[in-house]
Design a protein around this nucleic acid. Structure first.
Length: 372
DNA sequence: AGCTCTCTGGCGTAGCAGCA
DNA sequence: TGCTGCTACGCCAGAGAGCT
């Protein structure tokens, strides 16, 4: 009998995580048999043994349990003190899902974040390859004009299962955020034209209201190409539209009463106008992230301060409250909030980006940007 | 971006040695 | 004697790289 790769592993892990204690090899074998059918007993024994101590702990002869979560293993914290505190900004080194699960209801007023898309691209393995500049699924755009370009994630490598995983990822995020954010709070999530519909439907299913998109007008390197192997024959064709914008999907936690009630009680329920005369608009002219900012914070998807500050300023209608970035990266959103005098919290899983954020946050927030 | 080809490494399985 | 620990091995999905 041929099993799908990983099914024995998933079955063992699922059983041990369910019983939350140790079990005998015999019990584990029986659980695997009930779960996925007849499996060679030696496969189960072998799998347990080969993955001890990474995944399993051998409690005694013939007895195994699941190793405790990552947070215990690599020193990351779920709650506790922030690892970086600059001005009114705090950065926690943690898994944001674990971190959000520990937070009080209604303790955040807005969320601005650029989550990891593709997921594959942001796994530890692919990140290591990206940092080493060799291998991996990050695509290096051609240097046709003599300029070296930064690696881009290849969203097209996502298959059906990856898209389902992405949907689950955003639904889980939406549910956690929905509890932690106050009624009327804005949640703005960076996306791209190929995946924004998935983000929107998952977050809405989690209970958030979709409130349109904010368009970051920026020339990207995605799409626009002529048909492969027929460039000359179809020189007038672009297979996929060249992306000249980036959608930031806007959600709102359902209001409690009227907008004015929310504004009085929670300080949320709308966007802050750039000026008395101008409403907050859904198109923000932008440009690629300036070199000097990339030099300060070497993160593959760093967004420019000029753009982030307009966005972060807008999400707190009265300029009061706490802005959260659960995928803080090198802390650029926190830097923008700090420059505006807003209170902000970031959560970042990767120690390397936390290390970068330590210097990047004060440096990015001290950059002078011309008033809007 | 997307296709194709090569080849690595993860995974499942078989089977033997040794322990309880 | 039965169960567990451990090693070797083969398969194949998918990573990596090159090309258009």
């Amino acid at each position: 009998m041929s099993l799908a790769p990983g099914s024995v592993r998933d079955s063992i892990v699922s059983y041990l995580s369910m019983i939350k204690t140790d079990a005998s090899v015999k019990d584990i074998q029986e659980a695997v048999r009930l779960s996925i059918g007849g499996v060679s007993p030696s496969s189960v024994r072998s799998y347990l043994n080969l993955n001890t101590p990474e995944i399993f702990v051998r409690v005694s002869r013939g007895r195994y349990r699941l190793r405790d979560g990552d947070s215990e293993r690599d020193g990351r914290q779920i709650t506790g003190q922030p690892v970086i505190e600059i001005g009114k900004s705090k950065l926690y080194h943690s898994d944001c899902f674990e971190w959000l699960a520990q937070q009080r209801d209604c303790s955040i007023h807005a969320v601005v974040t650029d989550p990891p898309y593709g997921l594959i691209e942001y796994t530890k393995k692919e990140q290591t390859k990206l940092q080493s500049g060799k291998g991996g699924i990050w695509r290096i755009p051609p240097a046709f004009d003599g300029h070296q370009r930064a690696p881009l994630p290849r969203f097209t490598v996502l298959g059906d299962e990856d898209r389902k995983a992405l949907y689950r990822f955003f639904k889980k995020l939406g549910a956690l955020v929905n509890r932690v954010v106050v009624p009327g709070g804005n949640i703005v999530v960076a996306s791209n034209p190929l995946l924004s519909h998935l983000v929107a439907s998952a977050m809405c299913e989690a209970g958030l209201e979709r409130r349109g998109s904010i368009v970051r007008l920026v020339q990207t390197m995605r799409g626009g190409d002529r048909p492969k192997n027929a460039h000359e024959e179809f020189s007038e064709v672009s297979v996929l539209p060249r992306s000249m914008w980036e959608p930031w999907v806007v959600f709102r936690k359902p209001l409690e009463g009227r907008v004015q009630d929310n504004l009085r009680k929670w300080k949320t329920g709308g966007f802050r106008r750039p000026s008395d005369e101008r409403p907050f608009g859904d198109v923000i002219k932008s440009s690629p992230t300036p070199k000097r900012e990339k030099k300060i914070a070497e993160h593959p998807s760093l967004k420019p301060q000029a753009f982030l500050r307009q966005l972060v300023r807008g999400v707190l209608p009265l300029g009061e409250g706490v802005v959260l970035d659960p995928f803080a990266g090198s802390g650029s959103t926190l830097a923008a909030a700090n420059a505006l005098g807003y209170e902000s919290i970031g959560v970042e899983l990767d120690q390397r980006y936390v290390d970068i954020a330590r210097n990047a946050m004060p440096e990015l927030s001290s950059i002078k940007i011309d008033p809007i």
